[in-house]
Design a protein around this nucleic acid. Structure first.
Length: 876
RNA sequence: GGGCAGUUAGCUCAGCGGUAGAGCAAUCGCCUUACACGCGAUGGGUCACAGGUUCGAAUCCUGUACUGCCCACCA
């Protein structure tokens, strides 16, 4: 390595002698901040603006490598837009709403929220607990305070990481999904939908998580494979006869309201219209035809219960059958009464009550075993249980199966608006295009309206109160809503219009809605949150709809869909024009990396080891939508690229300042040598395609060929002209120096979106002053027009390279150094190639250490054949 | 069961109608006045399989098999 003192003796040597990843970043970050490089300028018009609807990451722990991956891809696209001259609006939100935060706070501080506990202003959490029974029960307000405190802490850590990664966010534009602004926006959204009739409340069976004791939406469910048993149960037929039903959920026997078989099923057709009698409970239930009964499954006849699945709900609703709910909100069987005057019919109420008495209070799973036992004892079990695999619905964050429990919830009308929502989705440009299919299929498959209420605490409350009647019962049919001007409100502490606080909970008074909104009810408003829809009409007009929504594909059904829904309902508009869907990071074993699998990687250490640019390089190599294998060897390649940019740029800039330049600034007019012109015109082609590919969101293609071109530049063109730059004639040296300088200026800009740190560092050595653009990130994207006057013949470069390759191959074969002299070089090629080669001979001789006297050139008749060369090495 | 992607060198991927490509890894060399955190060279593939269209297919069409993901009212 070169002695550092040599460097310091160089005139104007204001750049470091060597590149150490990680050393330049802090200073560059600080400069970006102080120079306001990423600030949005509200004074500029909408058409010059590029608005990003950034995904607010869930603040519940730590960011992982998947976040780095997808947020970097967004940043790459954003940086390109900024260099096109766009006024970029790139905010950051924090999703600190909802269950993940609640769970984190519960575990971290060993607390549970208990709304009946009074507020303690001096409360100090005592820390995590081992046993569930040791958890402290604290008031709602204390709990919310802990949530806020914790999320504020986490947000600081997240921001620091984003800055370190070099995300070009305008840090003045941040929001938190439980902050006042989001609460106001969410509540205003609710009021608007309420007024337009898009939202309604209903007491109806809804997907219910018995652990969290809250309603959940269809989008938050997932199927999990579970093993269960088919139990064959004998039902009697009223007036004689019997049949056997196969069920996996015998504990719902008491909830049976009908049995159904396929209308064409000859076995059961004679029974339609008659009544079956359930074992144990002796309920008389209708035997009905239904197309959804599959003659091939089980015995071909099945129970309809309230409620085993969504089909039961449908059937119950369509046929207006009685409600026999047995599963309670906590997942246990609730007490019920049988016989005359009750929903639970029975031919023998005393026996039914005796049987059910052994089940009430048990959890569904326990009740299942007990029911089977009772059936066995009573002789109604026909044969042994048969094992089976089944798909069971779970809340994605839960660990108990979901049940359908009738409760009062708020819903948004999705089902009747499917056609409009599909149409809205079509108006968005999806990247990659096939991701629209996901959206389309999800919308088409929806079978429930969107349930937006949750029986939780840390979330946005519904701005709703209900009048209480003379008995103190709430009148849900006449909800009271506040003026928009009053928002945000908390119906637990604020008073509805026309009432006084003294009337809270009193007959003839009022009560506040206890529920909070689903996280997605707020998240679906992100483009409106950051545009100021609820607070600033002018700003909203300038920032809405957004230009780009970056997100992952698994939340197309939630975040993308809900956002499109709300934008349509509120503004009759799409929320954004482009959806950029990033892929996942998968482990080398091809599994998804996730916390639950314990194979997540935290980015801090990687940033330390490889540098931000290296991680960004890896992210930029992957196309949108494409899952990517976690592979540290790619980080190393990225790091090498950054180092190479440093070194090659150093060389080029030294030439542009050295004797070759002759002390005057270099420009296109100085590029006179045919080889230099050939290189410049080659690079112009790359510059042109980069613009269109990037505009098409295909940044990965750009990185691929820019990187290839750059290594080609270093290894071939630069090697060819190096000698001339050092010791050519003044005009020839000047031509090389001008081409080198321009090339580096172009590469720095082409790489800037991917490797913002190293490019900014190198830019600052010379180009910042030369171009009048202090930051490379606000310099204009390179254009062919910059170099319009420079035209060249690509064949010059190609011929010189071919000859040089032959020399290199020869030397490597002879195990000689690159500097080994070539005594004889006999080239044979067509006339055009020969003419081209003639124009770069001096460069070739210099780079290959060829003895001029030993060179011969023989022209063949046609240019079809490739250039051939015979090389003979000299003596040392 | 429906849908969407994918299957190209040991690994990660590009190419998407005209003679099989890159990086990494492997092997052999080279201290060369930007860089040894470097440079040069070499080996390595019936482009999953089967049909079809075409003068010509990794590339287009049809089917099959795997892989991954998304979805689904399997009682």
């Amino acid at each position: 390595m070169k002695d550092a003192s040599t460097e310091t003796n160089e005139k104007k040597s204001d750049f470091p002698a060597s590149y150490l990843p990680g050393t330049v970043e802090p200073a560059i970050s600080a400069r970006w901040e102080s120079d306001k490089v990423y600030h949005y300028d509200p004074a500029r018009p909408r058409q010059e603006t590029f608005v990003v609807d950034t995904p607010p990451p869930t603040v519940s722990g730590s960011l992982h490598i998947g976040h780095v991956f997808s947020y970097t891809q967004t940043d790459i696209l954003v940086r390109f837009q900024r260099m096109l001259g766009k006024n970029v609006f790139y905010p950051m939100g924090w999703d600190d709403n909802g269950l993940p935060t609640e769970r984190r706070v519960q575990n971290l501080f060993g607390v549970r929220c208990e709304p009946s506990v009074p507020y303690n202003p001096d409360y100090k959490p005592s820390g995590p607990k081992k046993e569930l029974k040791d958890y402290e029960h604290i008031s709602r307000r204390n709990f919310l305070e802990l949530c806020e405190r914790q999320t504020a802490e986490d947000e600081k850590v997240y921001e620091a990481l984003w800055r370190r990664l070099g995300l070009s966010i305008d840090w003045r534009q941040t929001y938190s999904t439980v902050g006042e602004h989001c609460r106001r926006t969410s509540q205003l959204s609710f009021l608007d939908l309420f007024r337009k009739g898009f939202v309604y409340s209903a007491e109806t069976p809804t997907l219910w998580d018995t652990t969290f004791r809250t309603a959940v939406a269809q989008a938050e469910c997932e199927d999990r494979e579970a093993s269960g048993f088919f139990h064959d149960i004998r039902f009697a037929v009223e007036g004689g006869g019997d049949f056997v039903i196969s069920t996996t959920r015998p504990e719902l026997l008491a909830a049976c309201i009908a049995v159904v078989a396929h209308p064409d099923d000859a076995r059961y057709r004679p029974l339609f219209g008659r009544k079956a009698v359930t074992p144990l409970f002796k309920a008389r239930v209708p035997i009905m035809p239904s197309h959804h009964a599959d003659p091939e499954k089980g015995t071909g006849i099945m129970m309809i219960c309230t409620f085993g699945d969504i089909a039961d709900v449908q059937f119950w609703r369509d046929h207006k059958l009685p409600l026999r709910q047995v599963i309670g909100r906590d997942g246990r069987l609730i007490p019920v009464q049988f016989g005359e005057g009750h929903q639970f019919d029975s031919a023998d109420p005393a026996a039914a009550a005796a049987a059910y008495g052994q089940l009430a209070g048990l959890y569904a799973k326990q009740a299942r075993a007990k029911t089977v036992q009772l059936l066995k004892d009573s002789g109604a079990l026909a044969g042994d249980p048969k094992p089976t695999k089944q798909a069971v619905k779970y809340y994605e964050k839960g660990d108990q199966p979901l049940e359908f429990v009738p409760t009062r919830q708020w819903y948004i009308r999705i089902l009747e608006n499917k056609p409009a929502l599909l149409e809205q989705g079509r108006k968005v440009k999806w990247h990659p295009e096939y991701m629209f299919k996901r959206y389309e299929q999800w919308v088409e498959g929806l079978n429930q309206d969107w349930c937006i209420s949750r029986q939780r605490y840390f979330g946005v409350p519904f701005p709703v109160w209900y009048p209480l009647d003379a008995e103190g019962a709430p009148d849900h049919s006449s909800p009271i809503v506040p003026d928009a001007a009053r928002l945000p409100v908390d119906p637990q502490t604020d008073c509805p219009p026309g009432y006084t606080e003294a009337q809270r909970g009193k007959p003839g008074g009022f009560t506040g809605d206890h529920d909070v909104m689903d996280t997605w009810a707020t998240s679906s408003l992100t483009p409106m949150v950051s545009s100021g829809w609820a607070t600033d009409k002018d700003k909203h007009a300038r920032l809405y709809p957004a230009d780009m929504r970056p997100q992952a594909h698994e939340i197309i059904r939630t975040w993308a869909f809900y956002t499109i829904t709300k934008s349509w309902m509120h503004e009759n508009s799409v929320p954004w024009h482009n959806a950029a869907i990033s892929g996942w990071v998968v482990s080398p074993e091809k599994g998804k990396m996730s916390k639950s699998k314990g194979n997540t990687i935290t980015p801090e250490g990687l940033l330390q080891t490889y540098s931000a640019d290296a991680l960004r390089y890896w992210s930029g190599k992957a196309k949108l939508g494409q899952d990517t294998v976690y592979d540290e060897s790619v980080f190393k390649v990225g790091m090498r690229l950054a180092t190479k940019i440093f070194n090659a740029s150093k060389f080029a800039i030294m030439q542009s300042r050295g004797p070759a330049a002759g002390g005057a600034p270099l420009g296109p007019a100085d590029i006179t040598e045919p080889l230099d012109r050939a290189w410049v015109s080659h690079l112009k082609g790359i510059v042109e395609s980069s613009r269109s590919d990037f505009a098409n969101y295909d940044y990965a293609a750009v990185l691929l060929y820019v990187e290839t071109a750059f290594w080609d530049f270093c290894d071939n063109y630069l090697e060819l002209v190096k000698g001339r730059a050092y010791s050519g004639s003044p005009a020839q040296a000047r031509s090389a120096a001008a081409a080198l300088e321009w090339t580096v200026g172009v590469f720095l800009r082409l790489f800037a979106p991917f490797l913002p740190f190293i490019t900014e560092e190198v830019w600052s050595w010379s180009f910042a002053e030369r171009t009048g653009h202090p930051s490379v990130h606000k310099a204009p994207w390179p254009s062919a027009a910059e170099m319009a006057p420079v035209e060249g013949d690509a064949l010059v470069l190609k011929a010189a390279r071919a000859a040089l390759d032959a020399i290199r191959t020869k030397k490597a074969g002879e195990k000689r150094s690159v500097k080994w002299p070539v005594a004889r070089l006999a080239v044979e090629c067509g006339p055009k190639q020969a003419a081209a080669l003639q124009l770069a001979l001096d460069d070739l001789f210099s780079a290959g250490c060829v003895d001029k006297a030993g060179f011969s050139l023989k022209e063949t008749a046609s240019d079809e054949a490739a250039l051939a060369a015979v090389v003979e090495l000299g003596a040392a």
